[in-house]
Design a binder for these strands. Structure first.
Lengths: 212, 212
DNA sequence: AAGGCAACCTACCGGACGGTCGGTAACATA
DNA sequence: TATGTTACCGACCGTCCGGTAGGTTGCCTT
């Protein structure tokens, strides 16, 4: 029945530990969260929790990798199957945003809290994040080379995209006036089309040319 | 010569303390920053620093209010002088973004770290932030009523704007491939016009109508 | 000259935190 | 029934942190 690695502790419980820890860390921050807090939330003692984890930093590191795994599996990998660049971008922004709203916080934690890791751990996480970032920027570059992008710096634009998406975790609340799908869709609209109507925009442009 | 409040400690030194503390807290996070760290960076001891501050949380609270003061003085107040709504939006996004890139971190800190405050302090900061947020959303509502906005939810759009702007502090580095002004301008472009070219966008819309 | 006060210091305290040690109870295996 | 392993617990340790007590130095005023 069990097909997991033989000598490791119970994997299912470990996943529950990651999920619970991620939620608490997300709410209170890594430093403000004590190992005791996490243990109590799981209904055990600190010593009991240390049966599963090897240290507080290692726990954070594992959670971050868990979050990056989710991001790869649910956003990056499916995106690679989409031929059209614009559709691919739409999918990435929407599915990434939904991962943030739906998720138990693992993806969000790796956004902040990187400084709490050891330098070696930090380097590994940063490298994985960098890979994702580059994939997104390459996508924008592809769109740009097809002439479908406005005159923007693709690096800055990628950061803007990620900023909007990551910011979701700060304001989106389940049961608020937007559903997760609606919130994701608003971000897609904003990212691809911006705020202003095109006609208003071009009118403005003409006006400014006359002025100067 | 001195026209400051008579019994309070040296105001100039206090401002230096705020600036230095803000930089360290911005880099390492509030919890990971000890009072000793701040004191040493100022060339004094912890007890010496406590001559100026009444507590670690109060220091954080003061820095946040300092940041919000900056935001009011350099973004909100000048914006109120601008008649045209679109120009006002442009100005707000650009000047807010430049405040983030240029600043010593006080504005950025109040973005994170709110949870470190006492409930009463947190409520006050949240109220001030809320005022700023509402002012920005009202501006979008005004543009929308003038018919100059795309079909977006103004609340979500405001969060998107603030997300892009606040995210700046995570990636913008002085001396990088963009100047502070260029970075701010990229955010304005992204916020107002989005990524895709209008013509590409309308072509896409027509295509999808045909498909479905 | 004397007093006052701002601007620090050294030394210390109580508490919390990460982490460890040596158990124990439950269950599986043989 | 003996043996091992997993999943915990209570008690403890060293360290570091926020904060305080009480002093010293030097400038400013009167």
């Amino acid at each position: 029945m069990k097909a997991q690695k033989k000598s490791a502790p119970n994997n299912e419980r470990l996943a529950e530990i990651y999920r619970t820890a991620a939620q608490i860390i997300l709410r209170k921050g890594y430093d403000a969260t004590s190992v005791n807090d996490i243990a109590n939330a799981l209904g055990m003692t600190k010593a009991g929790l240390y049966h599963y984890i090897s240290g507080k930093k290692e726990l954070l590191f594992d959670i971050m990798n868990f979050g990056l795994d989710e991001l790869d599996e649910e956003v990056a990998a499916p995106a690679r199957e989409i031929r059209d660049a614009e559709e691919r971008l739409r999918f990435m922004v929407a599915s990434h945003a939904q991962l943030v709203t739906r998720g138990q916080g693992a993806i969000t934690i790796l956004v902040d809290e990187v400084t709490a890791l050891t330098p070696a751990q930090c380097r590994k996480i940063t490298r994985r994040k960098r890979e994702y970032f580059d994939y997104m920027r390459d996508l924008l570059d592809e769109l740009k080379s097809e002439g479908r992008l406005q005159e923007v710096d693709t690096t800055a634009a990628t950061f803007c995209l990620l900023g909007m998406i990551n910011w979701l975790s700060r304001w989106f609340r389940q049961g608020g006036h937007l559903t997760a799908e609606q919130a994701a869709s608003e971000i897609v609209k904003m990212a691809l089309g911006g705020l202003l109507r095109p006609d208003s925009r071009s009118a403005k442009r003409a006006f400014r040319v006359v002025k100067s």
